[in-house]
Structures are given as structure tokens and as C-alpha cells.
């Protein structure tokens, strides 16, 4: 059971959260102007990184807020939690 730190409520068990996939994928401004390939890229393509990964979570059983997490997909180590709209914090060694 992962321990995830909601930026508001603090550390809670993972079962209180829902996963939202890769972070920082912005909905295109004018979808109508995109080619099928560009739209498919927005819609379907995610990095599926092995290692540190920026991803979205929502505190579904808590404050219902969305936020971003940097989690190592191999070790589950969470090295950053930051609010929607914020840039990922600089990595420290």
C-alpha cells in the first residue's frame, strides 16, 4: 500500500486516491485544427516511463483535489508532490 502525500490532507494510504495517468498533457487549444495523428498523440500516447515519472492523482476519498506526483515506477519512491498548474520541482540528488 503506497503512502501518498496529498498536498492538502497530508499522507494517506493509496486506496484513498485514484490514478490519473501522465501529468502535463495539455488539452489542445483547437482540436479541430489538429491532424488525426496529432489528436491521437494527445488522446492515446503516454510515456510509460521506467523510473521517475510525472503523473496525476486525485484524492478521491479525501478532499477531491487533483495534484501531480513524481513517482519512480520501479521502486514506487515518490520524490515530489505538487499542485495542478505548478511546474515539477527541481530534482535534488
Amino acid at each position: 500500500m503506497l503512502l501518498i502525500k496529498c498536498p492538502w490532507c497530508g499522507e494517506r494510504d493509496a486506496h484513498e486516491f485514484s490514478y490519473g495517468g501522465e501529468a502535463h498533457i495539455t488539452r489542445p487549444e483547437n482540436p479541430d485544427k489538429l491532424s488525426d495523428e496529432q489528436w491521437a498523440d494527445y488522446l492515446f500516447m503516454q510515456k510509460n516511463a521506467m523510473g521517475p515519472f510525472l503523473e496525476r492523482w486525485v484524492h478521491a476519498h479525501g478532499c477531491r483535489r487533483w495534484f501531480n506526483v513524481r513517482r519512480d515506477t520501479v521502486t514506487h519512491e515518490i520524490t515530489a508532490v505538487y499542485k495542478m498548474g505548478d511546474r515539477p520541482p527541481e530534482r535534488t540528488a
Binding site: 490519473g20 486525485v58 477531491r64 483535489r65 487533483w66 495542478m84
Partner: peptide, 13 residues
């Protein structure tokens, strides 16, 4: 409700 919140919070704040 979660769908509406998701769009309001993440894309259209």
C-alpha cells in the same frame, strides 16, 4: 461528478 471536477481543476481552472 469526478469527471466534472477533473476538467474544472486540471484544464479549466
Amino acid at each position: 461528478l469526478a469527471w466534472l471536477e477533473e476538467w474544472l481543476q486540471t484544464e479549466w481552472p
